[in-house]
């Protein structure tokens, strides 16, 4: 899995049956320090993430597993909304108990 930030939304009426009724969100993959890493990808959403949320997303074939047994041609699916990331390399200040994960990861 990877960490990414939801940065937008895609509307598509004409699509594979497997995508009906599912939200298509743009995710900006983040590098270790929380900076922009490559181009945004489009993913399905199973947890109701909104723009600006930091999320955990799974890619490749495993992205279809949350939708089993339905045939869903997705290679990226959001499987979690991040509350906080604790890692010593990421925490610029002394250990912070802040709930706001933005404080722990610098703004991309």
């Amino acid at each position: 899995m990877n960490l990414g930030k939801v940065v937008g939304k895609v509307w598509a009426t004409q699509k594979c049956p497997g995508l009906y009724g599912k939200r298509l969100l743009f995710i900006q993959p983040l590098s270790f320090g929380g900076h922009v890493l490559g181009d945004p990808i489009v993913s399905l959403d199973t947890v109701g993430a909104g723009t600006g949320d930091m999320v955990i997303y799974v890619s490749s074939m495993e992205a279809t597993i949350p939708f089993k047994p339905e045939l869903v041609p997705t290679d990226a699916t959001i499987v979690g909304i991040t509350d906080r990331v604790d890692h010593e390399a990421m925490i610029p200040k002394p250990w912070s108990r802040s709930r706001d994960h933005e404080a722990v990861i610098p703004k991309p």
């Binding site: 509307w11 598509a12 004409q14 699509k15 594979c16 279809t64 045939l71």
Partner: peptide
């Protein structure tokens, strides 16, 4: 993972025609 390409030698499929997108 589509009816058309199931168990076929395919590794890229067009899944949707985009009406609009915003970031």
């Amino acid at each position: 993972q589509t009816e058309l390409t199931r168990n076929k030698p395919v590794d890229a499929v067009i899944t949707a025609i985009v009406d609009k997108f915003d970031t």
